[in-house]
Computed example of a mutant assay.
Amino acid sequence: MTAPGHTATVARARLVMAAVALGLAALDLGLKAWAERGLAAGDTVDLGVIQLRLAFNPGVAFSLGDTLPAGVLLAVTGLIITALAVYTWRSARTGTLPMRLALAVVLAGAVANFVDRAVDGVVTDYLHTGWFPTFNGADVFITLGAAALILATLHADHRAKDRTEGGAQ
């Protein structure tokens, strides 16, 4: 049986993860809508290191799968997102705060790109560096969230190893 305090803590963690994921997904979808309105005439806004430039990606990362029907990409990414959402939900019980937040950030990016693709079969991109394919905020969320998850996992594993070695002496 689960202690009432633990149940409340898990519920709070899930609420925070959902709020982070939904908030960041909404932010990206808003930026995509802004980019479509503000950059529709082919305008490019130079911000130094990065440019704002409108592009549409019918594929996934680096346009992989761009010749597949949009429905196939939606189905496959939908299944992946569902698995990620279930894993994120379950991680509220055992994951550290950095792990849970990192998962929420990855989920936010995945959901934002999925919702964007569901509308017209393409993902709206608006960030360009000149040397890297054009991307969007959701892609940044996925990349930074995955990196943070790796670091958080390594840190948690290192701490667990330290506790085990310290307790064995």
Rank of each mutant, 00 (worst) to 15 (best):
L15C: 07
A19S: 01
A83E: 03
T67P: 03
L149Y: 08
A148N: 03
V10W: 01
G78T: 09
A156H: 12
H6V: 01
L68C: 15
K32I: 00
Y87P: 01
L79R: 02
N113I: 07
L27E: 09
G137N: 06
T164C: 11
P98I: 12
T88A: 13
V20C: 03
G38F: 06
A55G: 09
D125E: 00
L73C: 14
V115M: 06
L151W: 11
M17P: 00
L107C: 11
L22P: 05
Q169N: 15
V115E: 01
R14N: 04
R159G: 12
A61H: 03
I150M: 12
V106M: 15
G59W: 06
V16F: 04
L15T: 07
A138R: 03
D162E: 13
A21Y: 01
G166P: 08
G167V: 08
L52I: 04
D157I: 10
L73P: 09
A168R: 15
G71S: 15
L24Y: 04
H128N: 11
A147Y: 02
A110D: 11
H128M: 06
V72D: 03
A21I: 04
A83P: 01
L52K: 06
L154R: 04
Y87L: 13
V49N: 12
F135E: 02
L52N: 11
L84A: 14
Q51I: 03
I150W: 08
V45A: 09
L149G: 09
T164N: 08
I80G: 01
I81R: 00
A18W: 01
